[in-house]
Amino acid sequence: MTGGIPRAPLLLALAGLLPFLWGLLTLVSDPVYAFAYETLGGRFVGPYVQLAYGTVILAFMSGVLWGFATRAPERQAPVCYALSVIPALWAFFMAGGGPVSAGMNLVFGYLGLLALDWQFWRWRLAPDWWMRLRLPMTLAVVACLLAGTLL
């Protein structure tokens, strides 16, 4: 374990950063962009890979929160379930449009997700190590999305 974070979630979370970093790399390197565009196609370059993957992961994180909601006391559970679907709904309704608005809306979605992560952790529904994983992951994702959106 690294800093109390179990190895498997840490490694999988770090691997989950790769599409965000790849999208950023294709934006700052013309040769990498050209290689990726020619071999993988336009969907896997620049902000497109970041936006598509960012939308999927934001929805996935709703499922994680739903799992935490299953641990809530019966009278608190309805609130937890309702909160858990917010990131998926946000991704569905707000990640469309052009790349700038979609990117900024994903940034706001991930920041909102961090607030929900903290709340579920504070309610002791998430593991003790949860925020030690989620805070740096969120900062990395937001930095990549901001750079991809603003470049």
Score class of each variant (00 low, 15 high):
L135S: 01
P136H: 11
F92I: 12
G54K: 07
P99Y: 10
G42Q: 00
L58E: 03
Q50V: 01
W118S: 13
L21W: 08
R75S: 11
S29D: 10
F108K: 08
T26L: 14
P99H: 13
Y33P: 04
G96Y: 02
P73W: 03
F35G: 02
L125Y: 03
G103Q: 12
Y110T: 01
P73S: 14
L18M: 07
G67P: 08
W123V: 13
A140S: 13
P31M: 02
G148T: 06
I5V: 15
D30T: 11
A59W: 10
V142C: 04
M104I: 15
G54E: 10
A95T: 11
L145E: 03
P87N: 03
G96V: 01
A52G: 15
L21G: 13
S84P: 06
C144W: 02
L24R: 06
Q76T: 11
Y81L: 15
I5S: 06
W121F: 07
L111G: 10
A126D: 11
F44N: 04
L18R: 01
A36W: 03
I86H: 02
A34W: 05
Y48W: 05
W129E: 11
L146D: 00
T138C: 06
L83I: 08
L145I: 07
R75T: 13
T70Y: 04
L116P: 14
A91G: 06
M1T: 12
G42P: 00
A88K: 06
A147T: 09
W123I: 09
G4S: 08
W22D: 04
L139N: 01
L65H: 13
L18N: 00
V142Y: 01
L116F: 01
A15F: 13
V141M: 10
P31I: 01
C144V: 01
P73G: 13
L83D: 12
V107L: 13
G67H: 11
A36K: 02
F93E: 05
A82F: 02
Y110W: 11
